[in-house]
């Protein structure tokens, strides 16, 4: 089992744990953090391929830097939306944000 396969397996494990958190947790902050975990798993794949890919280059690391920047922007906007919703509904439970469904 090469090192690349080990890194990809670890990233798959982290991605699946993050997906489980997104699907089962009710607290919106935990859902956001689980999404960050999934993004981190994707970043790990990019960095692993930048070293162990067929043509090793720094492009994978540059892409992971861009992905991290987007994740930070997403977290900031996500927490802002969450606080605006909390001010309106006084809850962070994602089950209760169902106004569009009713």
């Amino acid at each position: 089992m090469s090192m690349l396969a080990s890194y990809l397996t670890l990233a798959a494990v982290l991605f699946c744990i993050g997906l489980y958190g997104v699907l089962t947790k009710r607290n919106a902050i935990i859902v956001l953090l689980s999404i960050e975990l999934m993004l981190n798993a994707a970043n790990l794949n990019l960095v692993a391929f930048s070293k162990y890919g067929v043509v090793p280059s720094l492009t994978g690391q540059v892409f992971s830097l861009f992905a991290m920047t987007l994740a930070a922007a997403e977290a900031a906007v996500g927490v802002a939306v969450l606080i605006a919703l909390y001010r309106r509904r006084a809850t962070v439970n994602v089950d209760e944000f169902d106004e569009l469904r009713r």
């Binding site: 607290n27 902050i29 956001l32 953090l33 977290a75 900031a76 927490v79 969450l82 606080i83 909390y86 006084a90 962070v92």
Partner: peptide
């Protein structure tokens, strides 16, 4: 940021 979000909301 997430800890700020946790502290500004009730759980």
């Amino acid at each position: 940021l997430m800890i700020f979000g946790i502290m500004m909301t009730k759980h």
